[in-house]
């Protein structure tokens, strides 16, 4: 649990790391209505697509600096030398980043969808979807960013975006399921299932990748 303390200490000073993605999400959600003529029903047509893509992009930005700084100043080496499990550390670190970006973004998605659809039940169901999907995206982009560690986050994004596409498809489908009220829980379970696999696998793979970087 030391890692939690350490990360919070660092992120307390690095507000841009977690505030930036939230603000970008916010700005995209504000930018969307501006591109549409302001009629409520027109707004709703593309709203959820923009919402999922905004979550995707904000999570991409959130991982931008997750290992780079530690790699450049040598902290990663110190962490590897310590005997404690490296992959668990990575998992916890991802969790902290999700806690600071994913949860606020999910709350914002709830607020924005309520504002757009005026449908409380629907917007409330968006909340868990956003929570789970943001965690999945975050994990995937962490993987991408670990690959392109000190080469900028664009490369990592290019490389992992294809992996994130199936999640977008599931999200799109689940909105349809919500609107026609068919088997929405199934989609939540599907996402949860994939999340539980990703949560275990990504830190392990990332730990190998980072070791390869330090070699």
């Amino acid at each position: 649990m030391e890692i939690l303390k350490v990360e919070f200490l660092k992120l307390r000073k690095k507000t841009r790391i977690w505030l930036g993605p939230i603000l970008v999400f916010w700005l995209i959600m504000i930018a969307y209505p501006l591109t549409v003529e302001l009629l409520q029903d027109k707004l709703q047509i593309g709203f959820f697509s923009v919402l999922w893509i905004a979550i995707l992009i904000s999570m991409m930005l959130a991982t931008e600096d997750i290992f780079t700084e530690d790699y450049n100043d040598g902290s990663l080496e110190q962490t590897i030398i310590q005997e404690s499990s490296f992959s668990t550390n990575i998992g916890l670190k991802v969790f902290i980043y999700w806690f600071l970006t994913g949860i606020p973004v999910s709350i914002l998605s709830f607020i924005f969808s309520f504002g757009t659809t005026q449908n409380f039940g629907l917007s409330l169901s968006i909340f868990p979807l956003a929570l789970i999907s943001s965690y999945i995206f975050l994990n995937l982009f962490v993987l991408g960013n670990s690959l392109s560690l000190n080469k900028g986050s664009v490369l990592g994004a290019i490389v992992t975006m294809p992996i994130a596409l199936p999640v977008l498809i599931v999200l799109g489908k689940s909105i349809t399921a919500l609107q026609f009220d068919i088997n929405f829980e199934g989609f939540i379970l599907l996402l949860l299932g994939s999340l539980s696999i990703i949560i275990v696998l990504v830190p392990i793979v990332v730990s190998y990748i980072i070791r390869a970087h330090l070699e």
């Binding site: 200490l9 660092k10 450049n72 040598g74």
Partner: peptide
Amino acid sequence: GHKNALKSYLTMRDNIDL
């Protein structure tokens, strides 16, 4: 090593904590 593993944006006290 060559790299100090120090966080330049934190105070010395925080770095010692780290």
